[in-house]
Simulated assay, not measured.
Amino acid sequence: MGKLGNEMKVLAKHCGGSHKTVNDRIHIVQRFDHHLRALNVQIQRVTQIKVRHIESYIYERLAQGIGKRTLQNEMAALRAVLQQAGRKQIAEHERLTNKSLGLSGASRNGTRQAIIPDHYRHVLETARAKDPGLAAVLELARLMGLHSQEAVQSVQSLKTWQQAVERGDTRLTVIFGTKGGRPRETVILDTGAVRKALDNALAVAESHNNRLINKPDLKSAMDYWHNQAARMGLTGAYSPHSLRYAWAQDAIRHYLAQGFSRKEALAMVAMDLGHGDGRGRYVAQVYGVGG
């Protein structure tokens, strides 16, 4: 990484936000720096960045088939870094609006589907035959509506969750791998299934150096999870996130059955997923939940 990349990285850190947001922003500016260097653009300071440089980057990303929602986020990161560097004029330039760049009109509707039971069973059986630890992570993700990172780091909470289930608690606290590092509470939809999955995961972990995914660090564990999940059939519309979609739909039905209104049920599921109660409409839109 050159001088420009290093300067942008420092600025990206200073923009603030959660650990994940900062990390994502750093990756974006590094990609932008790499794009300019690949084109042999000889600039070394953020003060030298021109409108055409950012246009060129976004058009290349569009040509690569990167989604508009993703590119809106990338532009937001680049604007934040430019603002941080005092380049407000460039950050707010009319040629760099989402509309001018051809990024407007992207839908937040969920692009993936809730995994269907037959496909889930097939993937789980394949995982059990290949790697019991991976299968345990997969099962917890489906039964608790976990993000991939939460599922991969779930081994750290297995005993706490097991004790909570034994006490008769109706909710479990998710701490590790959450977005922004904010703990969240999620409702137990099927106590028997969750208890069985936790007992199994603990047994697997005890025979695997207290790990479910036997990798030395989080990055290699996440890479392994994503690669293996795709090989087993969790890809496209049925990505690992489809497990969370299916859980969200189950949770909606759970709350409706308890007598909550649809609006209340959506708000409850939004909180269970870690989005906050004000994002019920978002949950309905992104997770495509009925009810």
Rank of each mutant, 00 (worst) to 15 (best):
G274Q: 00
R95D: 15
R37D: 03
Q48I: 06
E264I: 06
Q44G: 10
H226E: 07
A193P: 04
W247A: 01
G16V: 10
E125N: 13
I252C: 01
Q285G: 06
Y287D: 07
S148N: 05
G276L: 13
A77D: 14
E139K: 09
H122M: 08
M1D: 11
I90G: 02
N6Q: 13
R112T: 08
R128P: 03
L218N: 05
N227K: 06
Y287H: 12
R108K: 12
L273C: 09
G65D: 15
R108M: 13
T70G: 06
S104I: 08
M75Q: 08
A270C: 10
A76V: 12
I43G: 03
A77G: 13
N6W: 10
N200A: 10
Q153D: 04
H27P: 07
F260W: 07
R31G: 15
G276H: 11
G290F: 07
A205T: 05
V22W: 05
L266E: 03
D250I: 04
K88M: 11
L158R: 01
I115K: 00
F32P: 03
H27F: 15
I188L: 05
M8W: 06
Q153P: 02
R171P: 01
E125L: 10
D272P: 04
V41Q: 01
R279K: 15
Y255Q: 06
G5Q: 05
H147L: 11
T178V: 10
G233N: 08
D223I: 02
R253S: 13
T170K: 12
